[in-house]
Design a binder for these strands. Structure first.
Lengths: 313, 313
DNA sequence: CTATTTGTTTGACTGTGTCAACTATCGACA
DNA sequence: TGTCGATAGTTGACACAGTCAAACAAATAG
């Protein structure tokens, strides 16, 4: 794949977005500008409001400000009656800062104004575009930021639109990571359609792993075509941005639990030996490699593997 | 659908993104900060470099600056030998500004620095996440900005990952706009899989309408199941953000041209009467309503319509 | 008990943002 | 043709922002 022209296009797109979004942020801050308080004051009040109690230096560090400037800013707010200063109990050098009732009501007012400014962005959009906007924002955040390790992982049924999403993501992912072609995407489109069309018994289930409001992975269980007492585990997938958080393991564990509870005698699955991360998860869950079979699919030479987990203890 | 809690969640997500992206932009501007030139100077040089030739007031308006400050800023740059001033030919009040060779080389240096800063964002990402980042940024721009009317429309074959994308978008779109349920999504997943699996003859073709680097719509032609001399037009769809630009018409026109050139005797299509915008496009392209048939599908009571366009003149 | 670190303040200086006043020129109109 | 309002650019004044360095008092380490 040609990398160089691609990269410069991406850089141009990022710069264009930065210019664009700088304008948006400026627009959102304009509301603040109309109030008699400066942007720095608003930032400070917001920060103190959030943390409830703080010291001057703590704020300066967090907001990336000069400590001298912070000192002056704080005194200005105290003079305005928005901020109250009291000596720290342990350390007589430092003071603790807290909002006065006036400051707190201003904090609330700023919050409302920010909410309104953000809501104004949504006004001209229908619900489809609103979702789109928010999900794109969330995506950018998870791509560029370190994922908060405390972010909870939710396993839930799929929602409308997510089957297509899964086809899209996996089609693209395996194309980029493994070089597989469009045959694979068409195949999984059919597999998901078949899942959805399958009857409710023997039991089937699909789990979407959601993290930070986004699809982080998925997996499903259907009765195997050859033997309805055997469950088939299919389409295990974890988003690159969410890897390394044990999501694959959680999905497989849940699938095993479900299959056992549903009375299946065993679980089988088909995978390719080039998918090392997945293989590790299957092994750890107790699956055993039954046989291997080379084949040519999706424009690549592959080695298919059949794994099995016995559920009768 | 519950709208209220949804809205406040979206507002919170937008505000979170604004905070987050303010930080990113600050990070990108940090590089500039290290040079002996102020951010305002850099902005000004960048703006003049882009436009080649300008007046002071024009710049002040475009950058949203005070004219007085602009005057001082311009003189500072002239003193530094970066900017040259010359009297305007027509209007003796105004001066034209242009970069000197020194200014131009600084402009190029700033550009390189911005490119590098943007490229730094990409460094820790693999190609999958890079694409994702850029496409999310583009999406936000098209959602929030007025679409540039000069933006060219490209009809092209689909790429790997786009079948799933189309299933996702249409599944979600018709769910939100028409209330259709997951049955519809599963159906179209199969339809796209069937398209991909269909043999090359009789001729078939799928067009993706691309605008501003994004999928703006799509459509495909396959031989109809009942009669291979009849083409079937399927899955016409235009993204809400790109509506009103004649994309649907362009797609249908291209499909008609293709079908005629491929020797099909006629084109048929199946649609629902609730899809008014699509119906208008079919009518304008010369399609005639052949018959209607009420049915219950996708969790809704629908009125299916069969349209036909005769290609033998 | 001394040296160093830390929390905070202050001074000095440059740049930014905003208002208002001022000059020179342009364009339109009676 | 002269007048008047609009426009391009400049200048002064002032508050605030950003950065450095110095100062001071209290805390902490050795």
């Amino acid at each position: 794949m040609a990398e160089q022209p691609d990269e410069s296009e991406q850089v141009a797109a990022i710069r264009a977005f930065n210019r664009f979004y700088t304008g948006i942020i400026g627009l959102l801050n304009e509301g603040m500008h109309k109030s008699p308080h400066s942007l720095a004051e608003a930032r400070l009040i917001h920060e103190i409001g959030k943390r409830v109690i703080t010291t001057s230096t703590g704020l300066a560090v967090d907001l990336g400000m000069d400590r001298g400037q912070m000192s002056r800013l704080v005194w200005r707010l105290i003079d305005q009656g928005l901020l109250a200063i009291s000596p720290h109990s342990d350390d007589r050098r430092s003071n603790t800062l807290a909002l006065t009732p006036d400051g707190d009501s201003l904090y609330r007012k700023f919050n409302e104004m920010s909410d309104e400014a953000a809501a104004d962005l949504l006004v001209p959009l229908d619900s489809f575009l609103r979702r789109d906007l928010v999900s794109s924002m969330r995506r950018i955040e998870t791509i560029l930021a370190e994922l908060n390790p405390a972010e909870p992982l939710i396993l839930r049924p799929h929602r409308v639109g997510e089957l297509g999403w899964l086809v899209h993501r996996q089609g693209l992912l395996y194309h980029l990571e493994q070089g597989w072609n469009g045959e694979f995407e068409a195949l999984i489109a059919r597999i998901y359609a078949d899942y959805e069309a399958a009857p409710a018994t023997p039991p089937k289930s699909l789990w979407v792993a959601e993290m930070a409001g986004q699809v982080a992975g998925s997996l499903f269980i259907v009765p195997s075509a050859a033997d309805p007492t055997v469950a088939q585990l299919r389409m295990l997938y974890v988003e690159p941005a969410f890897r390394g958080h044990g999501i694959g393991k959680r999905l497989v564990d849940e699938a095993v639990r479900f299959s056992r509870a549903s009375g299946y005698a065993s679980i089988m699955l088909w995978t390719q030996d080039c998918l090392a991360a997945a293989r590790k998860i299957y092994q750890d869950a107790g699956f055993v490699l039954e046989r291997e079979e080379p084949h040519h699919s999706f424009g690549a030479d592959l080695n298919g593997q059949y794994w099995r987990l016995d559920l009768k203890r």
